[in-house]
Structures are given as structure tokens and as C-alpha cells.
């Protein structure tokens, strides 16, 4: 069995070497594919905080992905049409500045995470799955009917938003931004797992009764995890919208929630790099198999079935075995 640390290094290596190779060979499409993989990975890393650490099977993470997307869409739309976002009580105008958009996406996702979390965490198991799904659908239908921002057609943003010092329209520049954010979040996540909060949350997933008898509140721990999880997926949503320069209700759809969860399951639930592997495999299959057949999801389904049946730790678990303790 390979040490998980080495495998993680290899995966990170793939995310560095392929884009550099593509840059040298002048293959911008490959860079865009890797950007897509990095953003999906980020969204799934977010879900993994709730799912892997907190044991919260959220089928509504598209909510955050969409909120991130519309944060970008709405701010950029007002900036490109030179209309104010609101005039009362204070004048707020749109923005084409990525850091501002990201902060907005994170804050909005955190607020949504708090509200959805408070209500959803009263339930558990299948009811939790259903209630998070229901919230996702609410946002989905709301976005469809919100004609001010394109309704069903979505919003096109003509020029990618800007980041100080970079030309974000150059694929490798935008990729660098995305991969840097992914690495930063992975680093935070690796610390989080070992932190006092991580240990308490881990226990709250396994034995809530025990956590309560040592005087801690398992629901509050899970709520914090759910919010953090949502902010990361929300940030990914803002990046995804900027990658496509387009945001539509599809980002809120339950299929999106399902895909994010599939990334986590393929790679390995609760494993630091599980979502990253999952997203990479997904984008690779989407690219290669998608070129062969419109029905490539059949093969994805077979892969998922195989992993769920035979490799309970996802791909990472199959290669590295059970997670090590105290590492």
C-alpha cells in the first residue's frame, strides 16, 4: 500500500505538470480542462468537510455552488451594464473585481449555510438528505423565475472579471488563481482535520451521545462544519461562473449537487485529496468518453458502482488502504 502522503504529492504534481506542459505546447484547452477540474475539486473539498468529517450527507450543495455563481453573475452584470445593484439605503454598484466577488460569495454562502444548517440539522439520515435537497430545489426554481437576472436563460458576462496583477483571460493566469485557492483550502482542511475542532467533529459524526456527555454540543459542531463546507463550495461556484463567463439555474440543480457528491465518493469520503482525485477523474472521463459518446455517464455510473461496491475508501482507499492515525 502506498502512503497517502506520496499519492497526494503525485496528484498535486499532475495539477502542476499538465498545465505547464500545456502552456509550453500551447494547448489552452487542456489548461481550461484542468481549471475545470480544479474548480470541481474545490467544490467537492467543500462538501467533504460536511460529508467526510461531519457525516452530513448534503444533497443540496448546489445551493452554495449556485450562490457563488450568482454572486459573480449579479455583481458583474451590474458592472457591465453600469447599473447600481441597489440605491437604498446605500448606493451599491456592481464589481468586476474577483477578490470582492469571492468575499461576497463566501459571505452569502455562509449566511445560507447558517440558515439551511439550523433548519436541516434538526433532522438526520434520510430526512437530512431530503431537506437539503428541498432547499436546493427552492433556490433552483427561484433562480429560474428571477427574470431580472436572466431567469431560465441565465446571465452572460462578456469579459472575465479581473484580478489585480493578472490577466485573467489568459488561461494559465486564471488556472494559477484557481489552483492557488484550491491549495490554500486543502492546506486549511489538512489543519482542520487534526485540530481540536476536527477531533470533536469527527467524534460528533461517530458518537454524538459521547460528545454530549463530555459537555460539547454535537449539533453546533456540525453546523459550523456545514457553514464552512458551504463557503468553500460557494467560492468554487464563483470561480466556475467566471470560468464559463456564464451563470444559469443549472448551477442550482440537484444534478449539480449529485455530481459534487460523486466527486467525493469516487475519490474517497473523508480523505483530504479524495475530492481532488474524484474531480480529476470526472473531468478526464467527461473529456475522453464524452468525445466518444453522448451517453458517457453510463461508464461513470459503472465506475461509481464498482467503487461503492468494492472499494469503500474510494480510489484513495483502494490505493492507500485505511487512513492512518495521528498523521
Amino acid at each position: 500500500m502506498m502512503r497517502e502522503y506520496y499519492l497526494n504529492t503525485i496528484i498535486l504534481g499532475i495539477f502542476i505538470i499538465i498545465p505547464i506542459w500545456a502552456f509550453i505546447m500551447d494547448e489552452p484547452f487542456t489548461i481550461t480542462l484542468m481549471t475545470r477540474a480544479a474548480i470541481f475539486a474545490l467544490a467537492a473539498v467543500g462538501l467533504n468537510i460536511a460529508l467526510g468529517l461531519g457525516g452530513l450527507v448534503s444533497l443540496g450543495h448546489a445551493t452554495f455552488f449556485g450562490i457563488g455563481g450568482y454572486s459573480m453573475g449579479i455583481l458583474a452584470y451590474h458592472a457591465q451594464t453600469f447599473t447600481p445593484l441597489m440605491e437604498w439605503p446605500i448606493l451599491v454598484s456592481g464589481s468586476k473585481l474577483m477578490p470582492l466577488i469571492w468575499i461576497n460569495a463566501v459571505i452569502m454562502s455562509a449566511v445560507a449555510g447558517l440558515l439551511i444548517g439550523i433548519l436541516s440539522l434538526r433532522t438526520s439520515g434520510v430526512y437530512f438528505i431530503m431537506i437539503t435537497l428541498a432547499f436546493g430545489q427552492m433556490f433552483f426554481f427561484f433562480s429560474i423565475s428571477w427574470s431580472a437576472y436572466g431567469g431560465e436563460d441565465g446571465l452572460s458576462i462578456y469579459i472575465r472579471n479581473s484580478f489585480p496583477g493578472l490577466n485573467t483571460l489568459v488561461p494559465i493566469h486564471y488556472y494559477t488563481l484557481c489552483i492557488t485557492l484550491l491549495c490554500a483550502v486543502l492546506w486549511i482542511n489538512s489543519r482542520l482535520i487534526k485540530s481540536p475542532f476536527g477531533i470533536a467533529l469527527n467524534a460528533a459524526r461517530q458518537v454524538p451521545a459521547r460528545v454530549e456527555t463530555v459537555g460539547l454540543n454535537p449539533v453546533r459542531l456540525k453546523l459550523a462544519a456545514f457553514i464552512m463546507s458551504g463557503t468553500v463550495t460557494g467560492l468554487a461556484g464563483a470561480l466556475f461562473a467566471d470560468l464559463n463567463r456564464f451563470v444559469s439555474p443549472t448551477m442550482f440543480s440537484w444534478q449539480t449537487s449529485g455530481e459534487i457528491m460523486v466527486f467525493v465518493i469516487i475519490g474517497g469520503v473523508g480523505r483530504l485529496f479524495g475530492p481532488v482525485v474524484g474531480a480529476l477523474v470526472f473531468v478526464a472521463l467527461e473529456h475522453w468518453l464524452g468525445g466518444l459518446s453522448d451517453f458517457w455517464h453510463i461508464y461513470l455510473g459503472l465506475l461509481l458502482l464498482g467503487i461503492v461496491l468494492f472499494g469503500r475508501g474510494g480510489l484513495i482507499g483502494m490505493i492507500c488502504g485505511e487512513a492512518r492515525l495521528h498523521e
Binding site: I188, S195, P196, V214, G215
Partner: peptide, 17 residues
């Protein structure tokens, strides 16, 4: 986990326990 409960402060996110 017990010690953490006794300290009443699980809200430490980045330092390893």
C-alpha cells in the same frame, strides 16, 4: 475529546490538537 470537553473550547480550527 474528553479533555477538549473539559476545556469547553472546541473552536480551535488550525492548530493540531
Amino acid at each position: 475529546l474528553g479533555a477538549l470537553g473539559a476545556s469547553r473550547n472546541p473552536w480551535r480550527f488550525l492548530s493540531p490538537a
